[in-house]
């Protein structure tokens, strides 16, 4: 098992190196002159040059890259110029917000899309099937930022059901003692029920926005995979043996149909992390996505590089976790490197 994990990690190294190189080059091509930006509105040409030297931007690209890689090996991702803090600290502080949101959306999406997919498969070509298809496809057809703003307008501004879109917690709550960085879990651990409720309320709208966006792939794959399994011999045998329809579907068919769904989850997760960038901006969510967008628009290299690197590592880890999950769901599957 451990060797397997180690081998998988080794295999991921080339693509992570690729990500580092591409990001580095991309950020250097960004049109803004960082030095001019940070030298302030009234800087003379000489002052801009001083800032350039101070930021190390007067060096040649290969030299800059070498020093960047050197810092990276020491675990130093540099400091953000816009927020003035080390990128590592900022990413560490913001990553839980993004992952909590993404995971919550993924869970919500599973809860809705998997049953829909099952029903659509069982009642193949019925109105439920068509409805599922139209409903989930409609969800993936709207720009997420638009859905988000619309939800805020309807559920906060008009109806007042949702709390103010002020980020992870209402202003007058303090965050629970940090343990996992996930407010929902931390507040439960600390038995702060009020905080838990407040955090859940803040999480609701962004979660729904993201979940709507990810229903389609999950429902689609569940349906396809269920259709395959329902047509297989063992299901026919089980039915012939007189087992009730519900038992057959839930106990035999669904469990076997689960594998492709889990494979898709990895893809959906990274897809959601991308969509996150826009949702975070709409809901003032203090996650890594909004951080990276701001940095990119300010030609602030370090956070962009750090963000992309962290996302790439996360992507590798998630895929690894999914392979491991495979083994849990289906013991016959032997996980290979």
């Amino acid at each position: 098992m451990l060797t397997m994990i180690a081998r998988r990690m080794m295999l991921a190294i080339p693509s992570i190196v690729g990500v580092i190189v591409v990001t580095f080059l991309l950020t250097r091509v960004l049109p803004g002159d960082t030095a001019a930006y940070f030298a302030g509105p009234a800087a003379s040409a000489q002052a801009v040059e001083e800032v350039r030297v101070k930021l190390g931007l007067d060096q040649s690209i290969p030299v800059q890259f070498a020093s960047y890689v050197g810092d990276l090996l020491r675990g130093d991702l540099g400091a953000s110029l816009t927020t003035g803090r080390p990128v590592v600290t900022e990413l560490a502080a913001r990553l839980p917000a993004s992952t909590e949101l993404t995971l919550a959306a993924l869970l919500l999406s599973l809860v809705i899309a998997v049953p829909l997919g099952i029903i659509a498969a069982v009642r193949n070509d019925s109105w439920v099937d068509h409805f599922t298809r139209i409903f989930t496809t409609a969800g993936v057809s709207l720009p997420v930022f638009f859905t988000g703003l619309l939800f805020v307008y309807v559920f906060y501004f008009l109806l007042g059901w949702a709390p103010a879109p002020l980020g992870r917690l209402d202003v007058f709550y303090s965050s629970p003692p940090e343990w996992t960085g996930f407010f929902l879990i931390d507040s439960l651990v600390a038995r702060e029920w009020e905080t838990f409720r407040a955090a859940l309320a803040q999480l609701a709208l962004p979660t729904i926005t993201l979940a709507v966006f990810s229903l389609a792939p999950i429902a689609r794959i569940t349906r396809a995979s269920m259709l395959n399994v329902l047509a297989s011999d063992f299901v026919r045998t089980a039915r012939a043996a007189g087992l009730s329809g519900g038992t057959v579907v839930m106990r035999y068919a669904f469990r076997n149909a689960l594998l492709p769904v889990i494979t898709t989850l990895g893809m959906v997760f990274s897809f959601l992390l991308g969509a996150n960038v826009l949702v975070e901006k709409v809901f003032a969510w203090p996650g890594v996505g909004s951080y990276a967008v701001e940095a990119l628009l300010a030609s602030d290299y370090a956070p962009v590089q750090g963000f992309v690197l962290v996302m790439a590592i996360l992507y590798v880890l998630v895929n690894l976790a999914i392979d491991l999950l495979y083994g849990v769901v289906d013991p016959r599957m032997k996980v290979e490197g």
Binding site: A104, L108, V111, A162, P163, D170, A198, A201, L203, T207
Partner: peptide, 13 residues
């Protein structure tokens, strides 16, 4: 875990 998150989340403290 799924059940926990899916509960309606509308309070205004």
């Amino acid at each position: 875990a799924v059940g926990g998150v899916a509960a309606p989340a509308v309070w205004s403290p």
